[in-house]
Amino acid sequence: MGGRKAKIVRNTMFYSEDDFNFETQIGMDYIDEDMNQTVLVFQVDRTKSATIDIYGESEDEESIAYKEPVEINVILVVDKAVNKSYDKTQNLARYLQIGNLAFSVYTKTLTNNGIDISYGDYIGLQVTPDQMEYFVVTNDGRINFDNKHTMYGFKSFYRTVECAPADKNEFSGI
């Protein structure tokens, strides 16, 4: 972001940039080393992906181009799978829809890995040693200056990203 740059000075009577950085580092250490929950971020390369001109949707599961996948440490929550059916008249063509994925990630984690997560990016979650499930980002949590996402109202320090399961013929990953 260009333009004017201003230092955050609110709530600084008993709190400072150093305190913020210290507490952020404690949290990141806990997440990275103690919890060690990770997801794989597939940032879609929107210029290289093959899409149908007018609709901008991918032609097949191979046509989505993505940047080098990056594994990041997060705190994640996967909702319970839901028993659903495609035919709602007679409840036929049943399937077990994977629950949504939501994860919180330190903003600094993204910065350190040189990535950003955007709406429509794909997230890989290793659920078993030989199975990875893919999700598509439905809410990238980019606007994160609400109270919950700030440290004592000083500065925002993490993002909550929400994802919905992606079809295998939409994105096949790696």
Binding site: Y86, D87, L92, A93, Y95, L96, Q131, K168, N169
Partner: peptide, 26 residues
């Protein structure tokens, strides 16, 4: 329920979910 299994077992993913795209006749 057997009906769905016998028809779709060839085109399910590792979670045994039928993969779009397909047509259903009821």
């Amino acid at each position: 329920r057997m009906s769905e299994f016998t028809k779709t077992w060839e085109m399910v993913d590792e979670n045994k979910n039928i993969l779009p795209n397909f047509k259903i006749v009821t």
